[in-house]
């Protein structure tokens, strides 16, 4: 933790970065994103198990970008988000400095996609056993049972879009749900509108979700939204050996075709 503060101070003092996006403490001992702009404020940075929010979505936030060159305290999901965003042309190489932690708890400064890619390779990027178990559980349900399960979950939705807004991959300035000519997806938070919204969002994340879990954490009514993407992540891994957010140059799996692609998934 000390090293993080030190690294942040260094970056700000040397002018290598104008803002360090990181975690700090709020009242009631909460953890929140903070934006350190002065070297002396670097002491406010913390990094512990409560630091789970995916900070990647702040790097392209207009007001934050405005400060100048950004550095970000980067947990694995943040790094993977950066790579995925890079592959989608949303961030450019050497634009962001990632302050990351190695598996043996060393603080490293990663200032290129190549360095981030190498760093990410040190970690397991597949679904965890717990996640796989959850997926198994939901896939073990029959079609009707699963439909009922999701219907019940979606009925809670109030269309606050916290899932979308918390997701680094949902960067569209106009979301497809906001397209009103024609209105493909109903705006109202009724069952039909909710189902269409969530399924559309999951589909738009196919091959792009880096499984940070923020959508589910952000949901004020506790819909387990990340369960939707687990399946997509597994399928793409099984069918195409593809995992999102591992490389800044990987091409989008669902819009590329290789000779060796199998078509067994078409059922």
């Amino acid at each position: 933790m000390l090293e993080i503060k030190q690294k942040a101070r260094e970056l700000l003092e040397s002018g290598k970065a104008q803002v360090v996006i990181g975690y700090g403490k709020g009242p009631n001992n909460t953890t929140r994103a903070i934006f350190v702009r002065k070297p002396e404020d670097a002491d406010k940075l913390v990094l512990d198990d409560t630091c789970v929010q995916n900070l990647a979505l702040y790097i392209y936030k207009h007001e934050v970008r405005h400060f100048g060159k950004e550095a970000v305290v980067a947990t694995l999901p943040v790094l993977r988000s950066l790579l995925q965003l890079a592959s989608e042309n949303q961030v450019k190489d050497n634009e962001i400095i990632a302050i990351a932690i190695t598996p043996d708890n060393k603080v490293v400064e990663l200032d290129s996609f190549a360095a981030i890619e190498e760093h990410v390779r040190l970690f397991n990027t597949g679904l965890t056993e717990d996640e796989k178990d959850l997926l198994k559980k939901i896939n073990a349900m029959g079609l009707e049972e699963r439909w009922a399960f999701w219907n019940k979950e979606f009925s809670k939705c109030i269309k606050c879009y916290a899932c979308r807004q918390s997701c680094p991959m949902c960067y569209c300035p106009r979301c497809a749900a906001e397209v009103n000519q024609p209105q493909w997806i109903p705006v109202a938070a009724h069952q039909h509108g909710n189902i269409e919204w969530h399924i559309m969002r999951a589909m738009h994340l196919a091959g792009r979700c880096i499984n940070c879990g923020d959508c589910a954490r952000a949901c004020p009514v506790d819909i387990p939204l990340n369960l939707l993407t687990y399946n997509l992540i597994e399928e793409l891994n099984n069918e195409f050996k593809y995992t999102a957010g591992l490389s800044a140059s990987q091409t989008y799996v669902l819009s590329t075709w290789k000779l060796e692609d199998k078509e067994t998934f078409i059922r």
């Binding site: 989008y252 819009s255 590329t256």
Partner: peptide, 15 residues
């Protein structure tokens, strides 16, 4: 400031 709702992800370019 949008100019277009295009996000410039260029996934279209690929296909």
């Amino acid at each position: 400031p949008l100019f277009s709702t295009c996000t410039g992800c260029f996934l279209c370019q690929l296909v």
